[in-house]
């Protein structure tokens, strides 16, 4: 408790403890995180608290970030890949207000990156921590909504429901899988929801040097993928998982490898495609200018 007093940055709101949550709650969440890291991909229940942002808007991610944040951290917050989207701005402001930490939009500079729906394009490095906001932690919920039953299926490692669903999709549509939130096998043991990131980002979880933490506030679950852990998208040998992106080049930086947003430019069918990762796009544009 005394530690928190001197951790209080000078320009933060004095009415609140450093990073909003009380120290005992943060410790409880850190213990949950340790357990989650020890059992990769396994969902650990935790006593999620009411936060001053609504459920579904990142309360799980915010609680995880609040629990691991120290005064020397540099925080980046993205939503849909971008730092300037409204919810990302709101969460970044929240941590600036209650923790006074340094914030950045640069992926390379960040020690903690809280995200909704994307993993940055720039490869992450050792020591970086990704915090994912998770709406539905249970990868099987669309196939079996009852949690007592899915817990049993995880214990038995019985993922036949997901495999049959994938088979049916392939049989009916010719291709498998969900375009986003496509389930992954973690460390060859637990089926895990990667959160609603596009399938395009799934491969970035595999053997990543960064620590991946997943927080679901409303559903009161935390799970994790430790650095250098095997993460494989659910697929079949003869129908391998295929990450999808719009087949265009970014209109701003020309990238043909990044994930793109589709922007409607008029009501006559006009479309433009730009990078969803705003930091990556800006870096590309700078590199381009430097080369010219």
């Amino acid at each position: 408790m005394t530690a928190s007093a001197h951790m209080q940055a000078p320009d933060t709101d004095p009415g609140y403890n450093f990073a909003y949550l009380d120290e005992a709650t943060k410790r409880m969440i850190r213990r949950t995180l340790l357990k989650a890291i020890a059992i990769p991909g396994h969902q650990i229940p935790f006593g999620a608290r009411e936060m001053p942002l609504p459920y579904g808007w990142g309360t799980g991610g915010i609680q995880v970030t609040a629990s691991i944040l120290g005064p020397d951290d540099t925080l980046k917050v993205i939503d849909q890949g971008a730092d300037d989207t409204t919810n990302a701005v709101s969460i970044r402001r929240f941590f600036h207000r209650v923790a006074g930490v340094r914030t950045t939009t640069r992926t390379a500079e960040a020690t903690i990156i809280q995200t909704r729906h994307r993993i940055p394009e720039r490869p992450l490095t050792e020591g970086q921590v990704m915090v994912f906001q998770v709406p539905m932690p249970e990868p099987l919920f669309k196939l079996e909504p009852r949690l007592a039953e899915t817990r049993r299926l995880h214990a038995l490692g019985d993922y036949s429901l997901a495999q049959v669903k994938l088979y049916e999709d392939i049989a009916r549509q010719g291709e498998g899988g969900s375009s986003y939130s496509h389930p992954v096998m973690v460390n060859h043991r637990y089926l895990m929801s990667p959160s609603p990131i596009p399938g395009f980002d799934n491969p970035k979880l595999h053997m990543s040097p960064a620590l991946m933490l997943f927080g679901a506030g409303r559903e009161k679950k935390i799970y994790a993928v430790p650095p250098y852990t095997s993460v494989v998208s659910l697929d079949f040998d003869d129908h391998p998982f295929r990450p999808v992106r719009a087949p265009h080049a970014c209109a701003a930086c020309g990238s043909t490898t990044s994930y793109l947003d589709e922007i409607v430019t008029d009501d006559r069918g006009g479309r433009m495609f730009v990078c969803s990762d705003t930091d990556h796009c800006a870096e590309n544009q700078m590199a381009r200018k430097a080369a010219e």
Binding site: Q80, A82, T86, D261, E262, I263, V264, T265, D266, D267
Partner: peptide
């Protein structure tokens, strides 16, 4: 569903 579209986003 779209980051931007004709008429824009109005908060």
């Amino acid at each position: 569903t779209y980051k931007d579209m004709p008429g824009g986003q109005v908060l």
